[in-house]
């Protein structure tokens, strides 16, 4: 039995301990905002936060998660859209949108450790997340927008 928190709720999992978190979230809990893209931690579509830090849920097994706290895209906007989501909408980032929840989770993780990321910081942190529609230019702009907005709201 694995005990963990998902989006603030306590969960107990007694299935296959090798099951990747991705499929627990999607097929068992129904949090389908976390996407399946590659299954090998190559594309970032499945990115969620583990204790506030971005991880690839497709390559994180349930047995590794005892006592940890997972946040998915569904868990970041309980009090209205997150600042990063707002920036994404303001810049009109998405095309197909499939990778964007993973991108947003990765960006939240980035901004939590680097509130004022440089272009190089953004490249380093975001290059594990593939967008096949090619929205990278807008993702970069949205991250800068979110950082600016955060600085404004805190000043």
């Amino acid at each position: 039995m694995v005990h963990l928190k998902v989006n603030g709720s306590v969960q107990a999992f007694d299935g296959d301990p090798d099951m990747p978190l991705l499929w627990y979230l999607r097929d068992i809990l129904g949090f389908t905002g976390t996407k399946f893209g590659c299954g090998m931690a190559l594309c970032g579509a499945c990115t969620v936060l583990e204790d506030g830090k971005a991880i690839r849920s497709c390559s994180t097994q349930m047995k590794q998660l005892e006592g940890h706290e997972i946040t998915t895209i569904e868990g970041i906007s309980t009090h209205g859209p997150h600042a990063v989501q707002k920036a994404w909408a303001a810049v009109n980032v998405p095309q197909c949108g499939y990778c964007q929840t993973g991108q947003i989770m990765q960006a939240i993780s980035l901004l939590s450790s680097k509130p004022h990321p440089t272009d190089a910081d953004i490249d380093d942190e975001m290059s594990g997340n593939i967008c096949r529609c090619g929205t990278y230019q807008r993702i970069r702009a949205a991250i800068k927008e979110a950082a600016k907005e955060r600085a404004r709201s805190q000043s």
Binding site: D27, G30, F31, T32, G33, T34, K35, F36, T72, I73, E74, S77, P81, Q85, W88, A89, N92, V93, P94, G97, Y98, Q100, T101, I104
Partner: peptide, 27 residues
Amino acid sequence: APGYDVTDVCAGKPLFGMDVRVDGMLY
């Protein structure tokens, strides 16, 4: 104009074929 669905997309709503879940469904 911004995309009509931009808010739902960014919220991770179950919009995609991969997200469809039907009662009693097998995989």
